[in-house]
Structure formats: structure tokens, C-alpha cells
């Protein structure tokens, strides 16, 4: 769980903090009136808690059986994509965000799915090494 959480945190930090920094800034403009002003936001380190929650859900599927190799990746991918689609569905129902589109949701679901698939794979490997 710890290994998966750290990997997810590292990849998300790179993805949203570096590679997608410009498009995130664009998105923030829409929410500027309700967001914390820059400099007053909680530390990004708090996202460890969010990642741990995701690992708990993935872990319930992957470690309960337990799975190995590609099947853990596939289930990590599937569960994460489903979770992303549900959350984005809720977001689109209530928020008037012009950046949210079916294409954006699909991209998030695939990217999040690949990251969680890798984390599930790592978790299953660490679990099988330590449980023997």
C-alpha cells in the first residue's frame, strides 16, 4: 500500500505539476472565484492521503484474490477508470466547467487508469514478495 501510494504520488506530481501545469492553470481560471488564492493553498503533500484512499480501493480488488502480473494491471486500470468516470460524471452534472468534455473525461480515465494499473502491479509484486 505504501509502495503504491508513493508511486502514484510521484507520477501525479510529475503529470499535474510539470507536464500538464499549463492546462491546469487554464482550468484554475474558471474556478478562481472559489479557490484558495495562490500561496494559501494546503501543501501538495496532503495529496498522499488522497492517493492512499485510491490504493485502498485498488488493494481491495487486487490484493484480496491475490492477483499477479498483467491481471493486476488490468484490474487496477479498470477500477481506477470507473472511479474517474463516476467522479467526472458527478462533476459534469453540477459544475458548468467549459473544460470538462467527454474527450477530457476519457483522457483522464485512460491516464489515471494506466497510473493505477502500474501501482496495482507494483503492489501485487511487493505483496507476493513479502507474504511468502
Amino acid at each position: 500500500m505504501v509502495a503504491g501510494t508513493l508511486l502514484a504520488f510521484g507520477i501525479d506530481f510529475l503529470m499535474y505539476g510539470v507536464f500538464m501545469a499549463d492546462s491546469m492553470k487554464e482550468m484554475e481560471k474558471f474556478y478562481a472565484s472559489v479557490m484558495y488564492p495562490e500561496g494559501q493553498r494546503p501543501s501538495e503533500a496532503w495529496f498522499i492521503v488522497y492517493e492512499l484512499c485510491r490504493m485502498l480501493i485498488i488493494g481491495m480488488v487486487v490484493l484480496q484474490r491475490p492477483m499477479k502480473g498483467l491481471s493486476s494491471f488490468v484490474w487496477g486500470f479498470a477500477v481506477s477508470s470507473l472511479l474517474t468516470i463516476c467522479m467526472d460524471f458527478w462533476w459534469m452534472m453540477f459544475f458548468n466547467d467549459p473544460n470538462m468534455s467527454v474527450g477530457h473525461v476519457a483522457m483522464e480515465a485512460v491516464m489515471g487508469g494506466v497510473i493505477m494499473g502500474l501501482c496495482a502491479w507494483l503492489m501485487s509484486m511487493v505483496y507476493s514478495k513479502l507474504s511468502t
Partner: peptide, 10 residues
């Protein structure tokens, strides 16, 4: 979900 909303929204 609630945690991430509190992270960003004032």
C-alpha cells in the same frame, strides 16, 4: 471526494 474539494476550494 470531500478531501480533494477542501484542498482547493476556499
Amino acid at each position: 471526494a470531500e478531501f480533494s474539494m477542501h484542498m482547493f476550494f476556499n
